[in-house]
Design a protein around this nucleic acid. Structure first.
Lengths: 213, 213, 213, 213
DNA sequence: AATGAATGAGCGTTCATTCAT
DNA sequence: TATGAATGAACGCTCATTCAT
C-alpha cells in the first residue's frame, strides 16, 4: 500500500507537468488564433503571441518549430471545430426533423462557432485567402470534407422534396455559406440580432425568397 | 481655350511632365492594389510594389508619404470604382425596368467589378477586415454611401411591392452582398460559370427561394 | 566647350558616388576578412562587421545578400591575392634565376601575403576547414589552380635537376606549404624573425636537410 | 582492501553510479571533441553535443558549468593525449636507437594520434587559433611542456651530431610540426598514404633534404 | 542523475523610411 | 523626377543557460 503511494505520486506529478505543458501550448495557440484572426497572419508577430500567452517569445519554439507550424495547427483546429460542432448538433436532432430544420441548425451552429465560440474558426475563415498556397493546401482536405457534409444535407433535402429539384446545390451552398461566413465582417455581438435569429432569417430568405407571396 | 490651342513649349513640357508623373503614380497604385489583394497589406513590401511599378523603392516617397497613404488611396479607389460602376449601370437602365431587374444589374456590375475589372475593389474587399481600425475608419464614409445606395434600391423595390413588405431590408442587403463579396474567395475565372449567370442565379435564389413551389 | 562641362560634372558625380559605394563595399569586406580570420566565420556577427566598417548592420544587405555571400567573396579574394602576388613575384624574376631561387621567392611572397599583407588570405587559410562543404567547394577551383602553379614550379625544378629525381613532388608541396601555412599560428610580427629570413630558412631546410653534412 | 573484497550493497551501488556518471561525462566530452573538431567551437551547439551524447541538453549542466568548461577539458585532453602517447612511444624505444629514429617515432605517433586516434587532439589543433585568448591561455602551459619535450629530442640529436650544429632548433620544430599538424587539413584516411609512410617521408625530407645528392 | 520547461540576449535578415544628389 | 545609399527598429528564430522537480 505504502509502496504504491510513491509511484502514484510520481505519475501524478508527471501528469500535472504534462497538463501544465499542454496548457502552455494551448495558451500559445489561443493567442495566435485571436491575433491571426484580428490582424492577419503576417501582421501578427511571435512577440505579440508570446505576450498574450504570457511566456517569452523564445519559449514558443519549445512547442512549435516555426510560426508556420502554429498557423497550420490554428487552421486545422479552426475547421475541425466547426465541423465537429455542426455535425454533432445536426446529429443530435430527432430523426423526424425536417431537412429544412437540419439546415437551420447547421447554419446556426456554424455561425455560433464562427462568431462566438471559436477564435480558431474565425481565424481560419478570415485568413485562409491570404496565407501561402502551401498553407492553404495543408488545410484543404479538411475543408473538402466539411463541404461534403453540407452537400449531403442539401442533397437529402432535395431528395425529400424540400428543395426545388432544379436548384444547383453547389451554388446554393456557396450562396448560403458565403452570406454566413461574410457575417464575420459585420456581426457585432454587442448589437441587437441574436445569432439564432440571424440564422433563422438567412434560412427563411433562402428557402422562401424575399419576393411577394 | 488659348491654352489648348497654342500652348507654349514650356507649358507643353509641363503638361507632359504632369502626365508622366501621374502615370507613374498610377503604376504604383495599380501595383499596390494587385499585391495587396493577393497577399494582404502587411505581407506586401514597398520593394515589391516598386518592382512591379518599375521604379526604385525610394522613389515611391516622391509620390506618397507612407505605405499607409498608398493603402488609403487604394481602398478609396476600390469603393469608388464599384460605386460608380454600379450606379452608372443602374442609372442607364430604361426607366420602366422592374426593380428586380435593377437589382440584378447592380449585383452583376458589382460582381464584375470585384472579380474582373478592378484590382482596387478586390483589394478593398479582401483586406478591409485586417487593416488597422484607423485605415478602416478612413474608408468607412464611402462604404456607408455605397451601402445607402443599395438600401435605396431595396426600399424602392419594397415600396413597389416587388419585395415582401415584411422583409428586413438591412438584413437582405447583408445576406445578398455577403454571398456576392464572398464569391471572391472561390470564383475561378477559368471555370464555367459566367459572372452574368452567377449574378442571375443569386438574384433568383434570393427572390424566389429554393423551396418547392 | 561650355556645353561639355555639365555632362562631365554629372558623370564625375556619378563616378564619385560609384567610388564611395565601392569604398563602403570594400570596408565591409575588409572588416569581415579580419574578423573571420581572428574569430572564425560562425563566431563573427554581422553587427561586428558593420561596426568595424562604420555602417549600420542592416546596410550590409544593400551590398550583400547574405553573410555567406560575404564569406564567399572574402575567401575568393583570399586565394586570388596570394595567387596573383606569388605568380607576379615569380614572374618578375630574371629568367636565368635558379629554380630554387624561384621557390624561395614563391615561399617568401606567399608568407608575406599570408602574414602581413592580406587579411583575406589569412582568413581563407584560417577558416577553410571549418566552413560548410558548399562554401569550401565554391573556393575549390581557385585553390586547385594555385596548387597547380606550385606543382609547375616543383616540376620544373625537378626536371632541371635541382630537386632529387626520386622526390614525390605532391608530398613535397604538402610538406612545404604545410609549414608555411602553419606559420600563421605562431608567427608574431613583433618578434625577431623577418619573413624573408623565415622563408629562406624553410627553403634551406627543405633543400639541404638538417642532417650533418 | 576490505572494500574490494566485500563491498556493501550500498557502496557497490555507489560505485556503479559513479561509473555511470563518469561514463556519461565521457560521452559528453567525446561528442564535444568530435563536433568541435568538425565544425569549430562556436558552430557547435550544446544541443548537438547532448544529442550525440544521448542526454538532454539541460543535463549537461549537471556535469559541466558551461560550454567553455567543456572546451577547456576537451583542449586539455587533446594535448595530454598526444603528449602521453608520444612520450610513451619514444620512451619504449630501445636505448640504443638513433635520435633520428626517436624523432621518426615521435612524428609517427603524433600524426597517428592527431589523424586517427584522438578526436580531442584533432579538436585542439583545429580550433586553438579561433577560441578566445583566455581559453588559449588556459591550454598554453600544457602546450609549452609538449613543445619542450620536442625540443629535448632535437637537442639530444644535435648534441649527438645527428643534426647539423648550425640548425636553429626552434625553427626546425616549427617547420616539422607545422607540416605535421597541417596534414590534418588534407589527410584522407580513405586514400593511399599510410600514416607511417607519411611520417617517414617527412623525416627523410627534413633530414636529407630534397636537393640533388 | 537527469529532465522538461522556460528565459532572454542576440543572431541573420527584412523593411519602411530618409536624404543627399 | 528619381535614385542609390543608408538607417534603425523589428522580425522569426537560435542558443547557452537556469531551475523546479
Amino acid at each position: 500500500m505504502l509502496k504504491d503511494k510513491a509511484p502514484t505520486s510520481g505519475s501524478r506529478q508527471k501528469t500535472l507537468r504534462v497538463r501544465k505543458s499542454e496548457a502552455t501550448r494551448k495558451r500559445i495557440l489561443d493567442a495566435a488564433a485571436i491575433l491571426f484572426g484580428d490582424q492577419g497572419y503576417t501582421a501578427t508577430t511571435l512577440r505579440q503571441i508570446a505576450k498574450r500567452a504570457r511566456i517569452d517569445a523564445g519559449s514558443i519554439y519549445y512547442y512549435f518549430a516555426s510560426k508556420e507550424e502554429i498557423l497550420d495547427e490554428v487552421m486545422e483546429i479552426g475547421i475541425r471545430s466547426v465541423s465537429e460542432a455542426v455535425e454533432q448538433a445536426v446529429g443530435e436532432l430527432p430523426p423526424e426533423s425536417s431537412h429544412r430544420r437540419r439546415l437551420e441548425v447547421a447554419v446556426e451552429t456554424h455561425m455560433y462557432t464562427l462568431l462566438r465560440y471559436s477564435a480558431y474558426t474565425s481565424a481560419n475563415i478570415a485568413i485562409f485567402a491570404q496565407v501561402s498556397r502551401k498553407a492553404q493546401d495543408r488545410n484543404r482536405l479538411l475543408r473538402k470534407r466539411y463541404a461534403a457534409f453540407w452537400n449531403d444535407i442539401f442533397e437529402a433535402a432535395q431528395d425529400a422534396g424540400e428543395i426545388s429539384a432544379t436548384a444547383d446545390l453547389s451554388l446554393v451552398r456557396l450562396f448560403l455559406l458565403g452570406s454566413v461566413n461574410w457575417s464575420m465582417q459585420w456581426y457585432d455581438p454587442k448589437k441587437k440580432n441574436s445569432i439564432d435569429e440571424l440564422a433563422h432569417s438567412f434560412c427563411t430568405m433562402l428557402f422562401d425568397g424575399i419576393g411577394p407571396k
